[in-house]
Computed example of a mutant assay.
Amino acid sequence: MKPRAFVPEKLDLAVFAREGAALEGQWPAASLQRLADSGAPEAPAAAWQPVRWQLQGEVRQPKGGAAQTWLHVTASARVALTCQRCLQPVEEQVDIDRWIRFVDTEVEAAALDADSDDDVLALPRHLDARELIEDELLLTLPLVPRHDVCPEPLLATQDPAGVDEEEGERPNPFAKLSALKRGGGA
């Protein structure tokens, strides 16, 4: 019998897991639009390395329980984000390695996800693995990307409202209030 061909963008996950099938590949980073949009504008995703990924389906049969559908997802990407200190591009390595359990309904997924450390999702008729991988990569991005040591010195910021340029000192914020009180207005 000829092995079944699986397409990651329209994956019949139940059959994929039942057959213990595996897929792997790479996509241009620019083809993952939301990931590309999260990058630094000065370093477009077209110049990034391709996103490498692997999927492995599995059916687990726990003792005394119903069969469980699992998907092992791994992916790695090198993305250019905006450093929050110097505002220049900073490259970040983003890797995911997750086991996801799939159940029949959203209600069951929500209940199990709340009670378990495992990631639990409702089993779709067809899974878009590209979208799932992109979601997982986005969740793994650092909240505050920054260089360990910024390549350019940081510019000194000037507080336009509070610095007296001639003296270089901040005026006392209560000086105006004191002047008003002395001026006789209650």
Rank of each mutant, 00 (worst) to 15 (best):
R4D: 07
E42S: 09
Q33K: 14
P124S: 07
E169V: 07
A30H: 12
P3K: 07
R101L: 13
A186E: 14
D119K: 05
Q33W: 09
D113S: 15
S178E: 15
D37V: 02
K176P: 10
L32N: 10
L180I: 09
K2C: 01
D164M: 03
P124H: 01
C86H: 06
A109E: 15
D119V: 08
P173G: 06
L138Y: 03
S116A: 06
D164E: 03
G183H: 11
A186S: 13
E9N: 09
V90H: 05
E92C: 08
R130K: 09
V79H: 04
H72R: 11
Q88P: 06
Q26W: 11
T69D: 11
W27K: 09
E19M: 06
D117I: 03
A80T: 03
L141H: 05
Q158Y: 14
G64L: 10
L127Q: 09
A114T: 10
G162K: 00
L123H: 05
G25C: 11
G185Y: 06
P3A: 02
D117A: 10
V90R: 02
L23I: 00
G162E: 08
E131M: 04
D128A: 01
L112V: 07
R18Q: 14
E134Q: 08
P153D: 06
G183L: 07
V59Q: 12
R60N: 05
P160Y: 02
A5E: 10
A47N: 00
Q54W: 06
L13M: 12
A161D: 13
Q158G: 01
Q61C: 07
W70K: 04
A75H: 00
W48K: 10
P153S: 04
V94N: 05
E91W: 15
Q61F: 04
A43M: 04
P142H: 01
Q61R: 10
K63E: 13
V7E: 09
R182A: 11
D159H: 04
E169M: 10
T105H: 12
C150P: 00
A46E: 14
E106D: 15
